[in-house]
């Protein structure tokens, strides 16, 4: 269970560029939840993920994971429990290293291998087994540098790397937005499959309203560092994109000015 309790973060305080990215933000994520998060640019979605992943420490408030206060645990230690995918498929992999080497690095989170150990045949078998699940033929190209792969393949590999040691929480930050429609659909399918199989608790930021209502079990809408809409259970069933837009207007008290939201299918 992830509890974000009254967290605030202001960027550039005291300057003209002051920006309250998170404003007394609270959220409780239950184990097994798959939460979709929507909101216009600057609503604080990415800041929320950055706070959860430990990219910065919040100005106030605390973050608890399974009863442990992780507010001041640095990002690289949190990476053991919290996985993350970015919109940019280049962000999650080392381009000049091979698929196998990238997977070996991701597998370090298991904490089972010594720092001077090498990639063993057993590791290789395991990686091959996992790569087969992606159904992209990557299992036969394990000694190819990752920089040679397409964006979709790299994002699929990043997804696999994030879950090869199943994290407690997986943060998906518009992870299909930079891909072509076919690749995006494939990655989304893989995401649902892998998250389902491993019962990973998941938060996903998306600008695709169809995705927001059809995937997962809870939908949040954010604006100005707050949650303006929180839909789950009965309320969320049968929800259409039009409903969501209308609720957003009501909750927000203003018209949507972000055509990225309006124009997505």
């Amino acid at each position: 269970m992830l509890i974000i309790d009254d967290v605030s973060k202001t960027f550039n305080p005291g300057t003209v560029n002051e920006k309250k990215a998170l404003d007394h933000f609270s959220l409780t994520v239950e184990d097994g939840d798959f939460i979709t998060i929507v909101g216009s640019n600057g609503a604080g979605k990415s800041t929320l993920f950055n706070a959860a992943a430990g990219m910065f420490y919040p100005d106030s408030g605390k973050i608890m994971l399974d009863g442990r206060n992780i507010t001041f645990v640095p990002d690289y230690q949190r990476a053991k429990y919290i996985g993350r995918l970015f919109q940019d498929p280049l962000k999650g992999t080392a381009p000049h290293m091979t698929i196998e080497e990238n997977l070996a690095l991701a597998y370090l989170r298991a904490g089972t291998s010594g720092i001077f150990s090498r990639i063993s045949r057993k590791d290789r078998e395991k990686f091959r087994e996992q790569l087969k699940k992606l159904d992209m033929g990557l299992e036969d190209r394990m000694d190819v540098p990752v920089g040679m792969l397409s964006g979709g393949q790299r994002q699929a590999l990043t997804l696999l790397m994030a879950v090869i040691v199943p994290p407690k929480i997986l943060l998906l930050d518009e992870h299909t937005a930079a891909l072509d429609p076919a690749a995006a659909e494939k990655i989304m399918k893989l995401t649902e499959q892998i998250v389902g199989e491993n019962r990973i608790t998941c938060l996903m930021v998306t600008h695709n309203l169809h995705q927001a209502v059809s995937v997962g079990n809870r939908t949040l809408m954010m604006a100005d560092g707050h949650i303006v809409l929180d839909l789950k259970g009965e309320e969320r069933k049968g929800l259409t994109i039009e409903d969501l837009l209308m609720m957003f207007r009501r909750g927000e008290g203003k018209d949507l000015d972000n055509d990225r939201i309006l124009l997505s299918d």
């Binding site: 690289y76 990476a79 999650g92 080497e101 991701a106 989170r109 904490g111």
Partner: peptide, 19 residues
């Protein structure tokens, strides 16, 4: 491998739980 990855993609090293 971690040292090599540091020069290649530093964020990815943190994401692999290494400082």
């Amino acid at each position: 491998l971690s040292v090599r990855a540091t020069g290649d993609n530093r964020d990815m090293v943190s994401a692999s739980s290494i400082n």
